[in-house]
Nucleic acid binder design. Sequence first.
DNA 1: CGAAGTCTTGAATATTATCAATAGGGGTGG
DNA 2: CCACCCCTATTGATAATATTCAAGACTTCG
Lengths: 227, 227
Amino acid sequence: MAKASLCDIAARYDHCARCQLKPFSICSVLSDEEMAAVAPTMAHLPVKEGASILREGDPTSHFFVIVSGSFRLVRNLEDGRRQVVGFVFPGDVLGTTSLDASSLSAEALEPSVICRFSHAFLDQMSDKHPAVREKLLAHTQSDLRKAHDHIVLLGQQSAEERLASFLERLSTVFGGREFHLPMPRQDIADYLGLRLETLSRTIAKLKDRGTIETARGRSIRLSEEAA
Amino acid sequence: MAKASLCDIAARYDHCARCQLKPFSICSVLSDEEMAAVAPTMAHLPVKEGASILREGDPTSHFFVIVSGSFRLVRNLEDGRRQVVGFVFPGDVLGTTSLDASSLSAEALEPSVICRFSHAFLDQMSDKHPAVREKLLAHTQSDLRKAHDHIVLLGQQSAEERLASFLERLSTVFGGREFHLPMPRQDIADYLGLRLETLSRTIAKLKDRGTIETARGRSIRLSEEAA
DNA sequence: CGAAGTCTTGAATATTATCAATAGGGGTGG
DNA sequence: CCACCCCTATTGATAATATTCAAGACTTCG
C-alpha cells in the first residue's frame, strides 16, 4: 500500500471524528489530540465479501475494529471439518492476541468496513495509556464469556435448543425480533455443530411450531418472547 | 478472617520467596521489594475438596493463582443440566474478570492450595505496573484459545475423538503418558458433552483397542504416540 | 464386613448423520 | 423478459451414534 498522502490523513481523521463506534470502542479512552495522532496510523478499510482479514496460522500483525458488516471466525481441522467459533459485528474487535500466530481465520460474510492498527502501534498506545490495555482485557474477557456460552450450547443443548438460542442472541445483536441473516446455512450449521440437513430440518420444525417465520432463506422473524 | 499478625506476614513472605510458580506467574513481573509489599496483602489458602472459590452469579472480589491441586469450572443450567467449561491446574489463574458477577463456579477436585488477592489490590498493582495487566491479558487470551479448542471438540468430534483429545491434553498438563485423573467420570462426561454411560462405554472401547489402560478407575496410561 | 457411592454393562429408544434426490432463487445471456 | 444454470436450501429414506432406563460390579471408607 502506498504511503499515506495528506489527503488520506485528512480523510481518516474525518472518519474518526464522525465514528459512530467511538464512544464504545478502544478509541473512547483517547483525547481529541490523541485521536489526531492515531488517525494517520490507522487504516479505514473496505473488505470484500469472502475476504479474510485473519488467517489461521498467519502471524498476527494487526488489530481490527469492525465498523460495519460482519465476519465469521473459523477453525479448520486437517480432515476438512470446519468449526465456526463465532460471528463478529460492528463494535467488536479482532486480532488482540499477543501470541505470534492466529488460531483462527476471520472471513467477511458481506461487504464490510474495518479500522486497522498495527500491533506495534497498539502496544505503544497501551504502554502510554493503561486504559487501552484495560479495554483490551475487558474485550477479551467478554469474548471468553461468549465462548463459554457457546460451549454450553454445544455440550448440553439439543439441535432445537441450539438454533433457538442462536436466533435469540442474534436478535439481541440486531436489536429486534425481525432481521436478515448475514450468513449462509452452512456457517450456522458449523457454528451449531450440526449438519446442514439437520439444521434445515430444525428450522422447519420451529416454523411448523410457529416459533419463527422465514422468507427467502435469509430473513427471519421470531415470535414474541418464547417463554 | 482476623487481621494478619507479623508472624503470618513472615510466613507469607516465605511462601512467596520459595514459590515454585513465581517465575511463570503474575508475580514474575515484580521486583523483590515489590514482592515484599505484596506478601502481606496476599492470602495463601488451603481449599478442601468440593469447596468453591468462585460461585456463579456471585460478585467477583478476588483473584486467584492455583498453587497446587485442581479445580473444575462449572456452568449450571436452570433445569439441572451442567456443563464443565474447563479444568484448572497449578500455575493457572482464576477470577480475572472485570465483570461484576462470575459467570461460573470453581470447585476443588481435591485438597488444593491457592494464592488470593483482592481485586482492589490487583487493580492498584496493574495501574502501577503495566506488565501486570499485560500478563492478565495474556492469561485471558490463552483461556480464550483453550475455550476455542473446547468448542471444536464439542462441535466436530465424535465421542471417541473427544475422549482421546481430552486425555492427550491432560498428558501435556501432567507431563507424562501415565497419570491419575483428579476428577470423577461425571465431570469428564459434563466436560465432553456426553452422558456418563456413553463416556464409560467410550473408555471401554479405547481399552479394547489398546489405546489406553486404566486401573482402579482413576489411573490412566496412554499408549505411546497414537498417530 | 457392610453400605454408599462410583463405575460399568445391557437392551431398547431417540436423535442426529449420511446419502440421494428435489426444489427454490438470483443472476446471466439470449 | 424469460429460459437456463448454478448455488443454496429443503425433503426423504436409511444408517450410525448417543441417550435412556435398568441392573450389576467394583471401591472406598466407616
